[in-house]
Simulated scan of single mutants.
Amino acid sequence: MFHAIMLPLVFVIGALVGSFANVCIYRLPWEKSVIWPPSCCPGCLGWIRASDNVPILSALWLKRTCRSCGIPYSGRYLAVEILVAVLFTGIYVIELMAEPQFMREPELMERLARVAYHASLATFLVVATFIDYDYEIIPDSVTVTGMVVGLSVGTMIPGIRPVPAGAETAIGGLGVGLLGLIVGAGVIYAVRVLGWVLFRKEAMGLGDVTLVAMIGSFLGWHVTPLTLFLGAILGLVHGLIRLATILRERLTGQSPRSSAIPFGPYLSLAALILMLGWRWLWPEWLAELFEVYSEVARFLLGALLGRIVGG
């Protein structure tokens, strides 16, 4: 009975947040307020009445057109609302329904808090994805705000992050978040510098640096190198498809589209995959992998210190 009530409620909340995400995607690149003025039609510039601004339902009822002037709206507004609603619902299913034994106090409240925490990260990632896809930038207003949320909630609720990034005290929660932020930014910034040294061009934008720093502040440092690795694989697949399309356009005499591929969407998708699958990935595979890497790192560090001391 509890899930029968909560699932539709979470979906509705996700659709509402998705509607606000659309506002952020449209306005933040232009440094406009996301609060005022109210949403308006891009054609007639008339304010959209509240009854025509109900997420998902209004778009379907009005067939994605303005009631006043009849101009069609982009289908992406509806897609973003549905996407965020589905993500919220999926997070709820994974956090509460995958392990039904957590239906008692206080475990239930902790799980609900984690649903809200992960849903917040998912929202920031969706906003960053579409802005980066449109403009090839990721505004600090998205990522820095996300860092503040990740650090603040992780400090107030130290155990909210997934294993092994949980903590028992507020100071520990803050420390885990800061470590994740620093490692996340450092990993991407190192790739950025390496790309400049090897190819004399930017391999990563500063927006990618702050994006992974935000992911680290939410989920801990273990997720950040995996986000880069998985994001690179996802980007490579799309890059190969894009390359084949460009070659086909050149061979057929068509004007080729831009070959630039923003990396933010793939980092965001990788982070979402890891966040949703972490409860199975960590105990089944990743914990052992990180243990092996830790042993190798300790061996290399010991060897390096031995040579320094011996030399």
Rank of each mutant, 00 (worst) to 15 (best):
A303I: 12
E95F: 05
A119E: 07
A59M: 13
V142A: 03
T227F: 04
F229Q: 09
M156L: 15
A21M: 10
V237I: 14
R161L: 01
I160V: 14
D134N: 11
W221H: 09
G173T: 11
L60P: 15
L247P: 13
S120E: 00
I48A: 11
Y293E: 13
V34H: 00
S141A: 14
A167S: 13
S259R: 07
S39A: 08
S74F: 00
E291C: 13
V84R: 03
I188Y: 09
G46D: 12
R64C: 15
R307D: 04
G14T: 03
A167Q: 07
A297R: 12
R242P: 00
Q254W: 03
R250M: 15
I71Y: 01
V54P: 09
W47T: 14
A85Q: 08
V223E: 01
V153S: 03
G220C: 00
L243R: 09
S120V: 09
V17F: 00
W47E: 14
W196E: 12
P225G: 09
L305Y: 12
A21N: 07
P38T: 05
L198C: 11
L236M: 11
L194P: 04
A170W: 13
F229N: 06
Q254V: 01
G239N: 02
A203L: 05
G90S: 08
G195S: 08
R49I: 01
R111Y: 05
L272M: 15
I171N: 00
L286C: 10
G277C: 14
G235N: 04
Y189T: 13
V12G: 06
R114W: 03
T129W: 01
A113W: 11
E249W: 04
V176H: 04
W285E: 07
L87K: 00
L62I: 15
M214V: 06
D134H: 07
I215E: 05
F263I: 09
L276E: 14
L178K: 02
L7G: 08
L60R: 02
V34L: 10
M204Y: 06
T155E: 02
L121S: 03
V148H: 02
D208M: 10
I91L: 06
S58N: 10
T224A: 06
K201E: 15
V142P: 03
G175L: 12
I82P: 08
A271R: 12
P106G: 12
L305K: 10
M214P: 10
M97G: 02
D208W: 07
V142G: 03
R200M: 08
H222E: 15
A85R: 02
P139V: 08
W196T: 07
V126I: 00
T145R: 06
P37F: 05
G306K: 01
A271D: 11
T245I: 12
S39L: 02
G70W: 06
A116S: 04
V191M: 08
F218S: 03
E31Q: 15
Q101I: 10
F299P: 03
N22S: 09
L108I: 12
G146Y: 00
L300P: 05
G172F: 06
V296N: 05
K32P: 06
R76W: 01
A128D: 02
G205H: 00
A185M: 15
L174P: 05
V10A: 04
L112A: 04
G195I: 05
L234H: 07
V193H: 03
W36E: 04
L87M: 04
L219S: 01
